[in-house]
Design a binder for these strands. Structure first.
Lengths: 192, 192
DNA sequence: CCGTTTGCCTAAGATCTTTAGGTATGTACA
DNA sequence: TGTACATACCTAAAGATCTTAGGCAAACGG
């Protein structure tokens, strides 16, 4: 009966920690209840469902990454900004693999998700301010940056780079250098 | 009692189809048994566990993609090969979203998984034959290609490009053009 | 035709999700 | 200070999934 003080926010934060410890898809309402020393059904006053819990963790993770990203691009431009923002994603994924997996969770386009998604686009757009790109090149470049950041980090975290050298950490700065070169020589006119 | 003729292979194929229909993480031993009109426990003679089933579907998907990739790069070089291989991944993901999700499934580094992973590296390496890159640039470029292919396709499939224009299909060829430009101007020396 | 293999079965325990309704705790107000 | 209300957490229960153990009968080899 002792009241534990559950709230949606505390459950979400604890769920995120749990995700980092045991993996996002091992996070369950049951496991979370166990962690709080509380009956499973009690959580359903605070989260609507297992899906709701997972969605909240996803939005939390996306928000945390966006916060770090904003901090990283502030006062930086061009190549420095590119490297800083890229580092945010990679470091976050390595520090918080469960949360990073959560950020991939397919959350229905309701409010929070779309808005935090836009924050991430804006971060890439801010980096591109240092490279003069018109439209549609700018949007294309935003998507390329997002693809490389997410793709590289996913593959590395998934172990795809484990069975060859150099290490993922060695390639990373050179890949970013290459991206920097590309952004400075973006083909605005049809190259064919 | 009528024997249905279950085998690990048939279960895996049916599981892959099911994944495309209802989503990879909705694929369960139970759902598969239902589809075969068979008791759940019967499947356990053919697959070791739910995890085993999912892993088999993952390896199947990776293998199918590698087959298509090999077909695509055969007889093509440079930019043509790049566009063809990239199209393989994107088209496969759009035709078979469940299988594509399966290919991301974290499968422990046992035999088949590592080997099929290497096939994918080799495809990128084949594309790079058209661009003269030494080491470590070549490995870096392989990783960049993998990152862009996987990242772009994941983000597009996840709906990240839905709320802005141009469409994901419009950006795609221009992103590939940019990649082609980058591969032809890869910074082999430290650019700083 | 018989024996062996094995494919699919029933049965059962464990875990997770979710809903319905009850109890007691903390708060607000007289 | 006592009482009434809101609600935080509870018990109970049904349904789904995963997994193991052991049984029956169909297919196959001799």
């Amino acid at each position: 009966m002792a009241r534990v003080g559950l709230t949606p926010e505390r459950l979400t934060r604890a769920g995120a920690e749990l995700a980092d410890e045991i993996g996002f898809d091992q996070v369950s309402v049951s496991a979370l209840a166990r962690r709080f020393g509380v009956q499973v059904a009690s959580l359903y006053s605070h989260v609507k469902s297992s899906h709701d819990l997972h969605s909240r963790i996803a939005v939390l993770a996306l928000g945390e990454m966006a916060d770090r990203g904003a901090e990283a691009v502030a006062g930086r431009a061009g190549r420095d900004a590119l490297i800083a923002l890229a580092g945010v994603y990679r470091d976050y994924a390595r520090e918080h693999p469960g949360r990073y997996a959560a950020a991939q969770y397919r959350v229905e386009p309701g409010s929070a998700a779309v808005e935090v998604g836009r924050r991430h686009s804006e971060l890439s757009r801010a980096v591109l301010r240092g490279y003069e790109l018109g439209e549609p090149a700018q949007t294309d470049a935003i998507r390329l940056l997002g693809s490389v950041f997410h793709g590289y980090v996913s593959l590395e975290l998934g172990g795809s780079f484990d069975h060859s050298s150099p290490s993922g950490s060695d390639s990373w700065p050179r890949v970013l250098d290459a991206l920097d070169v590309l952004l400075r020589n973006w083909p605005e006119r049809q190259p064919q």
